[in-house]
Design a protein around this nucleic acid. Structure first.
Length: 271
DNA sequence: ACGCCTACCTGCTTGC
DNA sequence: TGCAAGCAGGTAGGCG
């Protein structure tokens, strides 16, 4: 379940390994992994491009390529990325391989096939990734990055006051704040002492402040711990340890560390 | 805008 | 033991 901290960790691990490398080809064994190209068109389009930078937006890894192009990788639930020598044995869950000129490969492994890789152009006037010149920006509609220093309590309050829904689905809404998923929404609400079914409109200023600070501090801590290695999540340089620090996620029935009573599970929006 | 549903997938767990 | 059903879950798209 890669969320912001997990994706950030993967991007950081990837960066020193692949910046400067040149892609010479691509092989895709599950066409629907590619958002907007056939495997053949994708291979032709990436070949010859150099990796200029590796970053992250929301839960997606963004790989800047030479020639004003960019790759986006969404790991969804079970996506993993590895950079390995081409001769290393490959397993059947690898859906996409980017072949590098130096004999290594970037391998996208994804058991459940929900992950998506997009290849886009960089609009040189706006700097945005677009499918075609004049088209909509790929990341249009995403909310602010919660760890961006320019994202302030004032911004958070303004956004909160435009919403009416329950807090848990709201935190999961990527157009509200980008990068929070099931794990860190639960953790942030617990830390802020706010019930997941509470609606945004009932928050008082101190509640808003606690939620803002809880979201940011839980994400900072999780990035420091390299994310939560639950189920299939791992990064190129290995697992994270945040799963050891979680207070509520997947702790149904276990005692609350604050009050000692067992954690109760409720389902909201099928989650 | 909100809430709810379904689809996409496969491995694992559960229950008979 | 064996097998089918149920579950997990981020996001898109549809409906009311």
């Amino acid at each position: 379940m890669p969320e912001l901290p997990e994706v950030e960790t993967v991007a950081r691990d990837l960066r020193p390994r692949i910046v400067g490398a040149t892609i010479v080809g691509a092989r895709c064994s599950w066409a629907r992994t590619l958002r907007s190209h056939t495997p053949e068109a994708f291979a032709l389009e990436v070949a010859g491009r150099r990796v200029d930078a590796v970053g992250r937006r929301a839960k997606q890894i963004v790989i800047d390529l030479s020639g004003d192009a960019g790759l986006t990788i969404h790991l969804k639930m079970t996506g993993q990325l590895f950079v390995v020598p081409a001769e290393l044995p490959i397993d059947p869950y690898v859906r996409l391989v980017l072949e590098l000129a130096d004999g290594r490969e970037i391998r996208f492994r994804d058991i459940r096939k929900f992950g998506k890789v997009g290849l886009y152009s960089r609009d040189t006037s706006t700097g945005a990734l677009v499918l075609e010149t004049g088209g909509a920006a790929v990341f249009a509609g995403l909310g602010p990055e919660p760890l961006d220093p320019t994202f302030t309590l004032r911004d958070f309050r303004r956004r909160l006051r435009r919403r009416k829904g329950r807090l848990k689905p709201l935190l999961l809404d990527q157009s509200f704040v980008a990068g929070v998923g099931n794990i860190y929404a639960d953790e942030a609400l617990w830390a802020a002492r706010l019930h997941p079914l509470r609606t945004a409109g009932t928050l008082r200023p101190p509640d808003e402040r606690r939620l803002f600070e809880a979201v940011r501090s839980i994400l900072v801590k999780a990035v420091e711990r390299r994310g939560s290695s639950i189920d299939d999540y791992t990064a190129p340089d290995g697992d994270g340890s945040m799963q050891e620090e979680l207070e509520v996620y997947q702790r149904t029935g276990e005692p609350c560390t604050r009050c000692g009573r067992p954690i109760r599970r409720i389902v909201i929006g099928a989650r």
